[in-house]
Design a protein around this nucleic acid. Sequence first.
DNA 1: CTCCTGTGGTATCCAATGGGTACCAAGTGC
DNA 2: GCACTTGGTACCCATTGGATACCACAGGAG
Lengths: 142, 142
Amino acid sequence: MQEGTETSPGYSGVTLRGDVFSAQCPTRELLDRIADKWTVLLLTMLERGPSRFNALKREVDGVSQKMLSQTLKQLERDGLVSRSVDAAAMPVAVTYALTPLGGTLVAAIQPMIDWAESRIGEVREARSLYDEREAAVISFAS
Amino acid sequence: MQEGTETSPGYSGVTLRGDVFSAQCPTRELLDRIADKWTVLLLTMLERGPSRFNALKREVDGVSQKMLSQTLKQLERDGLVSRSVDAAAMPVAVTYALTPLGGTLVAAIQPMIDWAESRIGEVREARSLYDEREAAVISFAS
DNA sequence: CTCCTGTGGTATCCAATGGGTACCAAGTGC
DNA sequence: GCACTTGGTACCCATTGGATACCACAGGAG
């Protein structure tokens, strides 16, 4: 019925490319979504190979069923993950797998993960230093 | 076909290196923090050069004062951003800048941003397809 | 047979978090 | 004096995340 019920597909020209700092930028909306705790963890986990719902729930420690199904649904909608149902299996088997597009994203976030793993020491050190200074300031103030 | 995920239990006090999937993993805690909307945007903005509080607030569209000061404080604590106060200036000038460590992080998240910018088209296409299918299923059900 | 488990979710509720607004103190322009 | 700037903090409410319960169905234990 209403053609205008959703974000206009046209965008006549100006894509605001490079301006992720504008709230309206579509790239920023995408960035907001992929720069997400569970998204990153799930994609990384799926890079190891296809997995099933409850397997993911067990493997990704701390994820709730709600967030898992929600995140997987978004990833599927974004074409990053595929969902295949085997209805013939006994209690129904649902398998999630990375799509090729999802694979390119995993490759793109890998440097971030590697950074976290290699720099965690420096960050922790910075934190201790900061907390010490902080404590000093507080005791000085009171 | 990979049998995947021998992330089985049985840690005997080992480093958990590479196991970001455990909730206790310190790397995962760090990853949760940097895989954050405002963190990514602020770091990217600061890569352009040092900036002041209200300048950042103006430039990063949509960030609230609260989230800005909160995020900056965390970044400072993590040693990714430095905060320098010029008390001599008229209404006090506070300048935020990337530290060398922060610079390495920006480099590490850049691929993710580039991915978002280059693949946004494919994602949008996947979304339309998904939404169409979804709508079809719903109208079929009702 | 009933009970319990596992499968893949959805629905519901509540706590935590994010964001908007107001306010502060100090200085400057009008 | 009044309003505006600076860099924040304090407070409140809306949105979100997370825990829990529940569903339908099938298989195995007892």
